[in-house]
């Protein structure tokens, strides 16, 4: 029983770390800043959730469970707000899009303040 919990924790940690590695691969391979930000979003969302849940299974206790729930909720909120802030500044600094299939922001009058 105890070994099973630990092994499940190991699996969750490795899966989360793999999400991190693929996000880093995306940062290296994707063509422009906007698509790279999408890749980082996967690491900040499910990557952290997997790693922290796996860590909880290695140190299981009720106070830790509460802390992990708080961490996951805060992480979801803050990573979303951080990504929006970065996306907005990226656009405001006139970072070019790489071969867009469609772009309705540049043609809009106000440039999305």
């Amino acid at each position: 029983m105890n070994a099973l919990v630990t092994v499940t924790g190991d699996v969750l940690i490795v899966v989360g770390a793999l999400v991190f590695t693929t996000a880093a691969l995306g940062v290296l391979r994707f063509p422009d800043a906007y698509t790279r930000l999408s890749a980082v979003g996967t690491a900040g969302g499910i990557g952290i959730i997997f790693v922290v849940s796996g860590a909880l299974l290695h140190l299981p206790s009720v106070p830790n469970l509460v802390k992990v729930i708080v961490i996951i909720a805060l992480q979801l909120i803050t990573s979303a707000i951080g990504s929006i802030a970065l996306a907005r500044s990226t656009y405001l600094t006139r970072t070019p899009l790489h071969r867009p299939a469609y772009d309705e922001l540049t043609s809009s009058a106000t440039h999305g303040k």
Binding site: S38, T42, A80, I81, L105, T110
Partner: peptide, 29 residues
């Protein structure tokens, strides 16, 4: 809505504006 769009990998909310008619508009990548 903007936070949920950004949390979904592959879509990204870039900015908002309000039209004179009062509709709230999102720009989504």
């Amino acid at each position: 809505l903007a936070a949920l769009i950004t949390l979904t990998p592959g879509t990204l909310a870039l900015g908002t504006e309000t039209t004179p008619a009062g509709a709230r508009v999102l720009f989504v990548h």
